[in-house]
Design a protein around this nucleic acid. Sequence first.
DNA 1: GTAAATTGATATCGAGTCGATACTATCTCA
DNA 2: TGAGATAGTATCGACTCGATATCAATTTAC
Lengths: 197, 197
Amino acid sequence: MLKDPLTLLGILDRLANLLRSDMRRVGGESGLQVVHLQAMIYLAQANRFSNTPQALAEYLGLTKGTVSQSLLLLDRNNLIERYQDGEDRRIVRLRLSSEGEEMLRVSGLHELWRSSTRDLSANRIRTVVSALRDTLFRIQDEAGGSNFGTCETCIHWSRRSARAYHCEWYGERLSISESRELCRTHVPRSTYLPEDR
Amino acid sequence: MLKDPLTLLGILDRLANLLRSDMRRVGGESGLQVVHLQAMIYLAQANRFSNTPQALAEYLGLTKGTVSQSLLLLDRNNLIERYQDGEDRRIVRLRLSSEGEEMLRVSGLHELWRSSTRDLSANRIRTVVSALRDTLFRIQDEAGGSNFGTCETCIHWSRRSARAYHCEWYGERLSISESRELCRTHVPRSTYLPEDR
DNA sequence: GTAAATTGATATCGAGTCGATACTATCTCA
DNA sequence: TGAGATAGTATCGACTCGATATCAATTTAC
């Protein structure tokens, strides 16, 4: 079946439109555009090395100028907070405000997805995650921009002790929950191999 | 792993952004927006019951007014053709012009995807397609809009002879290639079951 | 140690999206 | 035949998004 990869692309395309349409619906209730919700969703996941306008622009594939505008609007609506970085004073750091977090929580944005995947077996989900993750890492490589991913699959991540983790790239200690966050300098471990799971 | 469905959503989200970003790049070269390319890609797949502005609006999750504007622009650029339906004179039918087809062909839009999935085994792809298709059909159901899919998985489709197929819904004969096109009145066969493949 | 280049962010402008609303034309069906 | 439904278009305003320019802070080169 040479065509199956394209079938898959067609399914992803349709899924993307449905999820986007759902975001439009949810956003409409609060006067937000899709891109604003996407920014908030990103900030809810990003680790402390990746919570900047630049990283968000790379994640969304938009220019920093464009993203800057969206962030201004989110700030005006008190959904995010902006603060200066302690070391490099050019850098603005972003985080969801408590209102922003509450807004995401109440929105029910993920409900549709959650209920629709409820009956997939853990095994099927693992297979899908594994295959799509490989594809994602490959696409990120070929596209040449930033690579986003979580520590679990990153070559820079190491375990120092039972509850202490470490990032060799930034040279900093990481808590277990930080290790599950999204990072902009992710380098996939054992790239493109079907591997263990 | 209760979180795996959300991991999957995160991967889809990032994939969607990358593909969208690629469309922006390609579209920029021709002065087109992402939504214009999406419309053309849809028209390249849609069957003869689904090539209308209304169906496109449902596929994209946009209002018909919005879609109407995009179609005007595509028409001005001679990328699509519009013609009246023979039976119902309210209905406008759409198709890619030869320039439109050529444009899609040359754009290399699917190259990134193709090369990135090249090393996935047929088996893995089948599993992913099956799981995501189930999820897609479920989401379409719960979202309550139109359901898009191809004849292969549709309850209205039947085989009349070796090379003759038939749609019970529209009561019309279908060629084998038409049976692979996208339809707006798709009803999934044996819904949500892991099933044969 | 200073000038040049780089990097992170913001401001402005114009084409275009997008939803809301209103409107026309056609079809359905009672 | 007339009321309501359906397919599509037109208009308006808020907003996106890329291009470009600008500014400030940091890094690099010499």
